[in-house]
Write a protein that binds this DNA or RNA. Structure first.
Lengths: 256, 256
DNA sequence: CAGTGGTCTAGACCACGTG
DNA sequence: ACGTGGTCTAGACCACTGC
């Protein structure tokens, strides 16, 4: 009974010259791990099987599994912990909360955060939003608008768009009940893990609504940040347009 | 004659429990490679010795050298090219020119770039500049001010500060002669490789000079980008304050 | 003490670039 | 044909964690 009927049997890489679609073994393993993550076989915060177990499961050496995991860890999808295991990334943990928020206080001290929901509506997707979220204009999207305050000062005005089909049961009420980071809530309530994001940053002048909500002069400079967040498989799952006040905070970035 | 008198002999990692300052072998190799890079033993754009040569030189296995190089490649200090060798990163190559410039045209098309030097002075370091560059206020710094234009439109007003002791012979004349990216010029003319950078981004209102130089209304929103660039060993080598017009361009960023 | 990831080695073979 | 980095394996031992 050593016959292997697992659907996850990997192909040994085609080593003959004729192979056009050659893919290294560890990339195939990486793809299989990604599938399992996407499918929810291992949930955010949980540990995945040990390297030796995975090696046995996929019939490859530990070194090959290791290389696959190395890449996923480099992309922040997995987190290695020596002596404990390898864990699925989550937005719940203290050290990586607000992982996608690059706005940082000018002095080091961490501010108290509070959120005020302006509205939360389900509407047909405007065409620009639909395009960015890879939806059709007939599809329903959830539109959340809110103000984030730091130390009691309104600082961020957010306009958030989510695919309605995925975020079922998201209403102003359920939203209001949730404390803590929105991305952590998305994980536990809707099973959506935000894995990476692209941001587009500009300086703009405060319009009427922004100046009221953020309590700044009409026309004051604001940082406009448009973010598209992706879940596994590069599927866009959120469009977020934010206006930031940057007099006591700054947007930080590391180049290399 | 097998005695090894090389100054680069590495310590086998202390494997006994008592070792407080344990450092993996490959980290020691990485540090040695960094020293050689800093010292200029291999110049930007050149290839470093092959993995097998380095393994022989440091008396370790190829795998250990490989892991050290892997990390340096992940930090963009080295570039691997299969079949050819491993090369020292440079700002000269077309694909990584303007590697630190995150301002991107809204439409895809690459704009024609031109630079206009406003002035280039050697002065005593103001205290804030000195602090950020890890200098004393008595030290001399070079201060360059310039406007970058894209497709003929002034778009960036830069205020650049460099340690005078390192950038000897940098004058408005020599600067004006240089075409192409400033960081590439720093490499070939002054032997300074910029290896990574930290940026702080804000939205600000155009002041008098900015509005004149960039031909925008007084008070229009501009993106203010303060960048500290580092050479090997995390030594700060440049402070750059830029004001960007972001109506046809945006600052892009990837989060993960 | 057992189990996990982390380091290190040695060797085989492959893919790529250049003669 | 050769030398380069890239992949894959197997095995030994170490460091860390928790029972």
């Amino acid at each position: 009974m050593t016959e292997n009927t697992s659907p996850e049997r990997v192909q040994p890489p085609e080593k003959s010259a004729a192979s056009a679609a050659y893919s290294p073994l560890y990339q195939q393993i990486k793809a299989l791990l990604l599938q399992s993550l996407d499918r929810g076989e291992w949930k955010p915060g949980e540990s995945i099987p040990s390297e030796l177990d995975l090696a046995a499961r996929y019939q490859v050496s530990q070194g090959t599994v290791r290389k696959a995991i190395d890449e996923l860890a480099a992309e922040n999808l997995l987190i290695r912990r020596q002596g404990k295991g390898t864990f699925v990334s989550t937005h719940h943990e203290a050290n990586v909360r607000y992982r996608f928020l690059r706005l940082t206080p000018d002095d080091g001290h961490q501010p108290a955060t509070s959120s005020m929901i302006i509205e939360c509506l389900r509407v047909k997707a405007p065409s620009d939003i639909a395009a960015l979220l890879a939806l059709r204009t007939a599809d329903i999207v959830v539109n959340i608008r809110r103000v984030l305050s730091f130390d009691g000062r309104p600082t961020i005005l957010d306009d958030i768009w989510l695919p309605g089909a995925v975020f079922k049961g998201l209403t102003a009420e359920t939203l209001a009940k949730n404390k803590g980071p929105m991305y952590a809530w998305f994980e536990s309530k809707f099973g959506v893990s935000m894995v990476r994001a692209d941001e587009t940053v500009r300086a703009v002048a405060a319009g009427e609504e922004a100046s009221e909500r953020l309590e700044v002069e009409l026309g004051s400079p604001l940082l406009q940040v448009e973010r598209i967040s992706y879940t596994y498989g590069d599927r866009p799952m959120e469009l977020r347009r934010g206006l930031y006040i940057t007099d006591r905070f700054h947007y930080r970035n590391q180049l290399s």
